[in-house]
Nucleic acid binder design. Structure first.
Lengths: 220, 220
DNA sequence: TAGATTGTTAATCGATTAACAATC
DNA sequence: TAGATTGTTAATCGATTAACAATC
């Protein structure tokens, strides 16, 4: 597996999304660049981390690029995960359409609230988050990844239980900074981060508008 | 508003999360650095973008730092948004606990599926996504931001409608690359991006394990 | 052919780290 | 005081851009 710098990976994901939105046979670095908001030089430079090469005057074969990007992100490789937390978010996640096209399968959904246990979320029954059941599911389906959608208050406790029972990857949908052993990986996915980006953008725009208004006032 | 580079903003969000997870009066750059997985030099350098200064031998006042970070991300400033899409994800978002502490209020939830219209999501009724109703809500509550949680298929169409009616900020929960006019901002929030990060990490770990296994095989 | 586009080298720019004086 | 920690300067490192030869 070739090492690819973090910033490049982030852009490759964006290029992938762009390629999925197009439908022509060939795309040029310039086309991709425009949609991604970067320079075409950067796009070509990023593609040097891939094996796929372009054709002069034509550009890159869109499907070939997509295929390699899917390999880069292991899209085709099947991955079984569990969802922990049977609230609205957990349910939304457990039934997320996009998983099938990314090789992800939710094999079970857990909740520690006995009110939710036993309820159906489409064709999955919410299981009691309890050591023996958890272990059986993890072994049976070779699960090492858990999507954690519980309340902020119980997040760390739940994660501890998961880790004790062999989970080595946490997909963290809570806003909590989780503490885990070295061998466990946390990928943060809660919306706070993008929310703060949004709020700063709105705030920036407001202050710019104020500036513009001030300027016009001065001019008049 | 002081300009802060993108990468620094991303780290500031992480520091904020870390500071929220601690409870001491003072924190040192070293403590934060350890939890964030960066060097303490970098933390101090990042803090030069803020007005808050530390105290030698003591570190930084945690609350003072948090207060300034909250200002940086406009956490206290109230922002009214609408949620578009009344499915599981839309419902999860409309009832998201974290909004209140970030100054965000969901003032309405829309859906174009007549089956969902009229249903309650806690104390909000799902409204019909229709121009006249939309306009009235946007004017009444001074809304410029819409969280879009509709299906991938209808995403672009829905966004067009929103933009035509004055929405200038899209919080995009669909995996679609949206096309919008220049004056409209899109902040992507769908989980595909973090999912691909997760899958690559898992894949990397698997290939490392294979390598280790190979090595031991060779040794034996 | 001429024009368009890739792929790559060299130059620039920006971000991180190393180092350390200041000082609580 | 001595030790710990900040804040900043200088050195390094890495990432982006500029430029252009190759060529379809």
């Amino acid at each position: 597996m070739i090492y690819i710098p973090f910033v490049v990976l982030e852009r490759l994901k964006e290029y992938r999304k762009i390629l999925l939105s197009l439908d022509s046979e060939y795309v040029t670095s310039e086309e991709i660049a425009k949609l991604a908001g970067v320079s075409s030089d950067l796009v070509r430079r990023d593609f040097t981390y891939l094996k796929t090469t372009g054709q002069r005057k034509k550009g890159y074969n869109r499907i070939a690029l997509l295929t390699e990007l899917d390999e880069t992100f292991a899209v085709r490789r099947n991955l079984n995960i569990i969802v922990v937390g049977g609230g609205r978010l957990g349910q939304a996640l457990a039934t997320y359409d996009g998983f099938s096209s990314c090789g992800v399968r939710v094999v079970a959904i857990f909740d520690s609230n006995s009110e939710n246990v036993g309820n159906f979320v489409e064709d999955l029954v919410i299981l009691n988050l309890e050591q023996s059941i958890l272990r059986r599911v993890l072994n049976r389906f070779f699960v090492s990844i858990a999507a954690v959608c519980v309340s902020a208050e119980s997040a760390q406790e739940v994660v501890n239980l998961l880790v004790e029972n062999g989970i080595t990857g946490i997909w963290n949908f809570t806003p909590v900074k989780l503490v885990v052993p070295e061998n466990v990986v946390v990928v943060d996915a809660d919306i706070t981060s993008s929310l703060l980006t949004l709020k700063r953008l709105v705030d920036k725009r407001l202050s710019q508008e104020t500036k513009v208004a001030d300027a016009s006032t001065l001019e008049s």
